[in-house]
Design a protein around this nucleic acid. Structure first.
Lengths: 260, 260
DNA sequence: GTCTATCTTCCACTCAGCGGAAGGGGAATG
DNA sequence: CATTCCCCTTCCGCTGAGTGGAAGATAGAC
């Protein structure tokens, strides 16, 4: 090994290459990948070629790279059970409410959207499959936060609370009170806090997989135009019914054991 | 390096670890990963720990590993544009026909399902998001094959044609005639060829991204109970209409340029 | 309490990986 | 058409990251 970048593992270099597609867009040239990942051109070249040969990356006719379908296919294994189980019920939620429906889990301090049902109706897109938004700015995030352990909640509220819009709630004391209220009544509502023009309502889903009973493993919600905000709470019974359906289906679905 | 496995790159070892989750199930112990990937335990341990730290793998409370959400999120970049563009129209297809709707692309000799819309209605699951099935056994696959270049089609038909069910068509001459017919009339129908109890109909989607004009980049289809087979062709107008909508939407959607 | 299986850590050894430099190829420009 | 520029590809002397067997730790089964 040269002394230039000593101490950096091959694995960390490979992951830095993949990370370049996280932070710098879905299609990159070799030079762009090298620049983003902080690797010399020839090192990048070697790594990228090996990833492409396997199918983790794909090269287009112009010589640019993107994430390969084999990696996409492999990665579908992540939370597949949750997505497969809940999809039909999210479909029902979408049909019954006429609004975009989504499913999110907590990943660190963010809500990660693992599924989303939407149609042709134009709504401002606040969520995106495989997208993340801060917990405090989203209805699903607030629900996940409200049902977390107190020490986590307090640590979260003690950290920086970025506003995504002028309407985002960022006062820690006010948020703490709001979360207590959410925990009591069992749902959260947001109005133009994640994105201008959109409002959302969400309820928790307890899958029984969390280490601590009572914390929600997931949350489901719907998103509508901001003008619908006064009417959102009428959807609570449907949301809670769908949540219970997902919980029941998840318990009854056998956990994959490992070897097929 | 020890002489034991000389010649094997670190990248190939990392990819072998990921491959273990492709071939041996979604949840594996450290020993299982070592066994599946053909790596010594301590080598596997080091690689797995580094993948876990980054988020490519996740370890559960029992010490078993699965694909991590960060990798899942990153991998959503693969064909995101196609999925995002077509999703609302697949939703319409689902609503209009009442049947499971899916979208597939060709990956080698298989149809890879990149999206699928389904509800609570029980249908035998012939397709799975991130799943693959041989081209000759599926309606979407037959459509993709029918619009491919002759040399590819001939090479495919010269290879092994595995039956998935007793109804799978495997005679190369009969298949060639069938594919010519599909190319002419613009849709394919299968009856219990991919899975017992299920039938399917599909049409091509031309996204204009293939290197060769006229080959379909993708196909959409619906799946129904086998008893619906005589009625499937009534859905052709809707399928073709939805296909045209997807094509139009895809052309008008700007291609991501790389750097955000 | 004992046994078994799995996971974690250590470390002497070595070759896979490194990255700068040079050359090739393609596109843009004049 | 020639030149220039930018990006990609290939090469290779050097070296430290990676190796994997062995020993110890941990947890579960009996």
């Amino acid at each position: 090994m040269r002394a230039g970048e000593s101490g950096r593992t091959v694995a960390s270099r490979i992951l830095a290459v993949l990370e370049a597609f996280e932070t710098h867009g879905p299609i990159l040239s070799l030079s762009q990948i090298a620049e983003c990942s902080g690797l010399p051109l020839s090192t990048t070249h070697r790594i990228v070629n090996e990833l492409q040969a396997w199918g983790a990356l794909a090269r287009d006719a112009q010589g640019r790279y993107q994430i390969g379908l084999r990696l996409w296919e492999l990665a579908q294994n992540a939370s597949r059970r949750l997505r497969d189980t809940s999809r039909p019920f999210l479909q029902d939620l979408f049909s019954l409410t006429g609004e975009t429906a989504h499913l999110a889990v907590r990943e660190g301090n963010e809500a990660l959207y693992v599924d989303r049902i939407y149609g042709s109706k134009r709504v401002p897109r606040a969520s995106r499959i495989g997208g993340r938004l801060p917990l405090h700015a989203t209805a699903v995030g607030k629900v996940l936060l409200a049902t977390e352990e107190p020490w986590f909640r307090e640590a979260y509220l003690a950290g920086p609370l970025k506003p995504l819009t002028p309407q985002t709630h960022v006062d820690p004391a006010a948020l703490a009170a709001e979360l207590a209220e959410i925990a009591e009544r069992g749902y959260a509502v947001t109005g133009e806090e994640a994105r201008a023009g959109a409002c959302s309502i969400a309820v928790p889903v307890n899958l029984g997989q969390g280490a601590v009973p009572g914390t929600a493993d997931a949350a489901i919600g719907i998103v509508a135009l901001a003008s619908q905000l006064p009417l959102l709470t009428r959807h609570v019974p449907v949301l809670q019914g769908v949540s219970r359906r997902i919980e029941a289906a998840f318990q009854h679905r056998p956990l994959p054991s490992g070897v097929r």
